[in-house]
Write a protein that binds this DNA or RNA. Structure first.
Length: 885
RNA sequence: GCCGCGGUGGUGGAAUGGUAGACACGAGGGCCUUAAGAGCCCUUGUCCGCAAGGGCGUGGGAGUUCGACUCUCCCCCGCGGCACCA
């Protein structure tokens, strides 16, 4: 399919270059100008590309769909910084390469501008979020255009558009209908500076993911998504997707599936039983105490009369502590004895029941069985309070003595001792045996636990999609509701969506545990969709991560059937939104399923790894739910991104770019001074794409020099040039290397190969032939799209008058020919005992003749071998010959 | 504590187990120029040496191999994820 370049082809093409051929593609405007003027060239081509819509594929009729997607940005803060540009450029190169390889590439862009990031920025600058969004949008799109990425500008989306968040709300409704959205009162993470609740995934080390303030616990009634119901799917799906291992591991850890057993213990002299969860029931013969979380319902109940007061005091102190304090104080274990005992059925031992805040109510059953010999925490606790310690496992250190020091606590592999019928078994065998035994005896039941918790979805903020639910107290009294388990609650019907976010003046978060919308009866007062009595809308909005959990589907559906939308102010403004359609833009479906079938799953998704357990987990969950819809809209796949590539982080002054650090670097000035092409090349040349790097502009002049030299060389193309084999070989070698490097995201080495080729031609004082120039431009095109487009017009013209060219970015990627890669002569390195002592040149045809090479090599290293016994000679054909003496 | 990734010149970084330092940046020297800038040419891991040449070199230590930046084990350092998760 692709052209193969050879000397013959080159001669054949000379005919076309009369210099008189005209093309429809506007190549002529810069004719005659000889100095490189990036500003002029870049804005010219950006305007042409967008006007001609060459990067807007025909979604319906495309033959080789290739959907390349970059995580869309939060347009908060002061604009696109070079870190964003680094990531976007790397993604764009991949897309441009695939386009030249013959794919119909769809590369959309949009803004994730709804939600807390953008709202916080609006607070900072004191502007209404909606007003700020307009400003940010304009600024971001202007900057994005200036980077020269091949975006489809006819299909942009912004998550704060009513025509987008209508469907974000629709997804919430589907969640509710499937029983996956529910409301419950729970201890939730509260960020005291954002004045809202946060999902577990948004709390890092007890601190808010965004602003680093210490997260508090509050008891609030909140909306959750039952992501836990998909825990196994989310876990198993990881085996089928081509994602970086570190991200898969992070998700796996976060899901945290553990198989263990719930064991019930009778409380001595009482009717109560205590249930504990453990993954190490094999050590149960060594169980000597029980510890309850302070919040455990039995904690106070079991306390004997004389200890009741102390237990109560302990519980109250614990409850006042934040999670953070509990963890920090936990370095020194605390606890209080209830006075009660539980019976270890295996040994008959009366285990004292304690209350301690190292036990967490949220995990397992909120109670643990203490095996101090084989768990360090249990040991610390037992040691401090003088509880019994029994060894039941002997590990690889063979220590079988009593456990008296923390270093002796044995948590790893080993064999059972002091454990009756388990003795002699290794711990894994014993685990199975004891679980079988306990289940048989009715003492316990196998249990799977997950670290993953349900996704807390509601936010007490303004700038987000209102949760599309209505609460009717009349219905609740009558026990009626859309779902039996949630009396009083009704979804807003689809034809009533979107629930529009009203413009209010008091939009700032208030910290009362409710959204600012709760102050607006004109918003929340409504009638019950079921019984018509007066009812109240939900006033919380949904988490930003819900907005971004489905956007890849929407891009495909902007413009019905792949028709392009007309960007008009009316459509963009939420006030004028009508249900139905405006122009050719359909509003009656969240995504067009036929387009989704054709283009999804996404061919390659590129983004940062900081979203490992946030966006990248949520987006998979939402896709799985949509896959399971009982509807024509059900997705035909479970995994939206079978291939994900995590780019590195570009940092500045050793830290992630952020406004608070004041180390933001914006590309604008560099683009103005050197052009986007130079900056693109410079960013990509810093190192491997998954590596990131520290942005210093010390090398950018050098890259600018390269770009200008390329310009100079390529404006002096010669048509009549007989190429030597050497030159052809270099060209083919470069084609091979650059192609492979792009495919493996080694952009830095791809650029280095092009520099080598340039050096080879220019150092030899050669002129560049037309054929070389064409290939060179094509290989450089993904990296420097404007420069190459401009030069393409000059170097190549277009071969056929009748053909309408779409420029270099739609030309075929060059293919290399193996036969040119073979060298006539090769250099064989001569080693003595593995040390390089010389080299010999051998004809390629002779590289398999060991004797001849050996004879040549011997001469080379005679002085090293003289008088020594050569024990062995290793010859690697064409590479190396090693004399072992 | 557990898991993952990394450690190569002054700097960013190259190297299917086979010539370590590609390609750049920076630095030094030269040409051009009235001058500056731009451009071009040369040198540039380190030590000894005028040179020829040689020694040493990929965080440290051992090992496998004819041969190790690359594979194995131990240790040190940096970065990232998880974490009183029972």
């Amino acid at each position: 399919m692709n052209k193969t370049y050879s000397a013959k082809a080159s001669r054949g093409k000379q005919d076309y270059n009369s210099g008189e051929i005209e093309s429809k593609w506007p190549f002529d405007s810069a004719q005659g100008k000889q100095t490189y003027n990036p500003t002029a060239i870049e804005s010219k081509w950006q305007a042409i590309w967008e006007k001609e819509k060459i990067f807007s594929p025909d979604l319906t009729n495309a033959q080789n769909p290739y959907y390349t997607l970059m995580m869309f940005p939060y347009p908060s803060a002061e604009g696109l910084h070079v870190g964003n540009m680094y990531a976007f450029t790397g993604a764009d190169i991949q897309g441009r390469y695939m386009r030249m390889k013959g794919k119909d590439v769809f590369e959309p862009i949009g803004l994730d501008g709804f939600g807390i990031h953008s709202e916080n920025y609006a607070i900072k600058v004191g502007r209404h979020p909606r007003e700020q969004a307009k400003i940010s949008q304009e600024n971001f799109y202007r900057q994005l255009r200036a980077t020269g990425n091949a975006y489809d500008w006819t299909r942009t989306l912004e998550t704060y558009d009513a025509d987008y968040y209508k469907w974000t709300q629709w997804i919430f409704v589907q969640m509710f209908k499937k029983g996956l959205a529910y409301r419950k009162k729970a201890q939730v993470n509260w960020c005291p500076s954002d004045l809202t609740v946060l999902a577990d995934e948004q709390v890092i080390d007890g601190k808010c993911e965004r602003d680093g303030s210490t997260v508090e616990k509050r008891d609030l009634e909140q909306w959750f998504f039952k992501i836990t119901e998909y825990a196994d799917e989310l876990l198993n799906g990881l085996n089928q997707i081509d994602w970086p291992e570190k991200i898969k591991i992070a998700q796996k850890q976060w899901i945290g599936k553990k198989i263990g057993i719930n064991i019930k213990y009778k409380v001595d002299d009482l009717e109560d039983t205590i249930e504990v969860f453990t993954t190490r029931p094999d050590t149960n013969f060594g169980a000597t105490f029980i510890a309850l979380a302070p919040e455990h319902p039995l904690a106070l109940k079991l306390a004997t009369a004389e200890s009741k007061k102390d237990v109560e005091r302990y519980i109250n102190v614990s409850k006042k502590k934040t999670d953070q304090e509990r963890k920090e104080d936990g370095k020194e274990k605390t606890g209080i004895f209830t006075g009660a005992y539980a019976i270890n059925d295996l040994t008959g031992y009366k285990m004292p029941i304690w209350v301690s805040d190292f036990v967490l109510m949220e995990f397992g059953t909120g109670a643990v069985v203490g095996v101090p010999g084989h768990d360090k925490r249990d040991f610390e606790f037992a040691k401090k309070f003088g509880l019994k310690i029994i060894r039941v496992v002997v590990g690889t250190d063979r220590d079988s003595s009593d456990i008296t020091k923390i270093e002796q606590v044995q948590e790893e592999e080993g064999r059972m001792v002091n454990s009756d019928f388990l003795n002699g078994m290794d711990i894994h065998e014993a685990t199975i045996k004891i679980m079988d035994y306990m289940e048989e005896k009715g003492h316990g039941k196998r249990k799977v636990t997950y670290h993953l918790r349900d996704w807390l979805i509601s936010r007490q903020r303004y700038w987000g999609p209102p949760i599309p639910m209505v609460y009717c107290s009349t219905c609740e009294k009558n026990g009626r509701g859309e779902r039996k388990d949630m009396p009083g609650w009704w979804t807003v019907s689809e034809d009533q969506l979107p629930v529009e976010l009203p413009d209010v003046k008091d939009w700032r978060p208030q910290g009362t545990g409710t959204s600012p919308l709760a102050n607006h009866p004109e918003f929340y007062e409504t009638t019950c969709p079921s019984c018509n009595s007066s009812a109240k809308r939900e006033t919380d909005v949904s988490d930003t991560f819900l907005d971004s959990s489905w956007y890849y589907l929407r891009y495909l559906s902007i413009g019905s059937g792949g028709k392009q939308k007309n960007i008009s102010k009316d459509i963009k403004s939420h006030q004028s939104l009508e249900i139905g359609s405006i122009g050719n833009w359909k509003f009656d479906e969240p995504y067009e399923i036929n387009m989704v079938r054709k283009w999804c799953p996404v061919a390659i998704y590129i983004g940062g790894s900081e979203h490992s357990v946030l966006h990248l987990l949520y987006v998979r969950f939402v896709a799985m739910v949509l896959h399971d819809l009982n509807s024509p809209l059900a997705l035909p796949f479970q995994e939206p991104f079978p291939r994900f590539y995590a780019h590195g982080l570009l940092i500045s002054e050793g830290a992630k770019m952020s406004k608070s650090r004041g180390n933001i670097i914006v590309p604008d000035d560099y683009i103005k001074k050197f052009g986007a092409d130079t900056l693109r090349l410079y960013l990509m040349f810093l190192g491997p794409f998954d590596h990131g790097g520290d942005f210093r502009d010390t090398g950018i002049e050098g890259m600018n020099r390269f770009v200008r030299r390329v310009w100079t060389l390529l404006t002096k193309t010669t048509d009549n040039l007989q190429l030597t084999t050497d030159r052809l070989r270099f060209m083919h070698k470069t084609i091979k290397a650059v192609s492979e490097d792009i495919e493996s995201f080694s952009y830095n080495t791809a650029i280095a190969r092009l520099m080598e080729w340039y050096n080879f031609i220019s150092n030899s004082k050669y002129q560049i032939s037309k054929m070389e120039a064409e290939v060179f431009l094509k290989l450089l095109a993904p990296f420097a799209p404007h420069l190459t487009e401009e030069l393409w017009g000059r170097v190549s013209r277009v071969s056929k008058v009748s053909e309408v060219s779409k420029g270099i970015h739609f030309e075929e990627w060059p293919e290399y020919d193996e036969k040119y890669l073979v060298e006539d002569q090769v250099t064989v390195v001569v080693q003595v005992n593995g040390k390089r002592r010389g080299e010999v040149t051998v004809d390629s045809s002779n590289i398999d003749k060991k004797q001849e090479v050996e004879a040549l090599a011997r001469k080379e290293i005679e002085k090293y071998v003289k008088g020594k016994l050569v024990k062995n000679i290793i010859y690697v054909p064409g590479r190396i010959i090693n004399f072992v003496i």
